[in-house]
């Protein structure tokens, strides 16, 4: 293994698959990599990056695993005495105590909440929940959520402005869209999801939105 004062920074992120070597230099280990025979190796399909003395792989696929502080969009799947079982589209379940949400909550309701705590078997405890009424719910691969939000929320702001829709993005890949041009927002988000691994995305999405904005569309508000 090479020792270097500063790890060689590779100019771009590049696509890797499990087992591929990311770097042979001595670096800090970020997520998505492990060490084998002194080499840093990718664990998942994703974009590898060596920057600021750290190597990591940003996954392009994979399920959501709850993390403290994440904002998630869940669906109430069971009503119990102390609170509610919430589906957060993860192999792990989430629980919302009664006092962590305002008002009446029923089976099938959609909520946005924050992950307060994650136990050793990864089950999540939620807090600060609000019920979301109406709107449409879609699901994208959780690891691509950062692209939908964008640097300094640039992408999500673009989407909201151009479509006039309220958009809430959960770290668990669930996205709630309400009002405005719902279908256009949906299509733009799926496009971002598909092209998450490419660059120049903000420009392409801007163009996509502008090209399609003239299309007549039923707002879902009319449907209520």
């Amino acid at each position: 293994m090479k020792m270097a004062e500063q790890a060689t920074e590779k100019p771009n992120r590049w696509l890797v698959v499990p087992g591929e070597v990311v770097t042979e230099e001595r670096v800090k280990l970020g997520p998505g990599v492990y060490v084998r025979d002194g080499k840093v190796v990718a664990k998942t399909v994703g974009l590898a990056e060596v920057k600021n003395g750290m190597a990591r792989v940003i996954p392009l696929e994979g399920k959501y695993v709850p993390k403290v502080g994440d904002s998630v969009i869940g669906i109430i799947v069971d009503v119990k005495i102390p609170g509610y079982d919430v589906d957060i589209n993860s192999p792990y379940t989430a629980f919302l105590p009664k006092d962590a949400v305002e008002g009446e909550v029923d089976y099938g309701d959609v909520i946005v909440a924050t992950v307060k705590y994650v136990d050793e078997v990864r089950n999540a405890l939620l807090e600060n929940a609000s019920v979301l009424k109406g709107g449409e719910l879609i699901h994208i691969i959780p690891s691509r959520v950062p692209r939908v939000i964008g640097k300094n929320a640039s992408m999500i702001t673009l989407l909201k402005n151009k479509t006039g829709a309220a958009i809430l993005v959960g770290a668990n890949g669930r996205i709630w869209i309400h009002g405005g041009r719902v279908n256009l927002a949906k299509e733009a988000i799926f496009k971002i999801e598909r092209e998450a691994h490419t660059s120049g995305l903000t420009d392409r999405i801007t163009k996509f939105l502008d090209d399609n904005i003239s299309q007549e569309e039923e707002s879902d508000e009319d449907a209520e």
Binding site: V17, G19, K43, T44, V45
Partner: peptide
């Protein structure tokens, strides 16, 4: 498995 994003040591 890799397509599903499941972390693996290798293929």
């Amino acid at each position: 498995l890799a397509d599903a994003g499941i972390p693996m040591r290798d293929l």
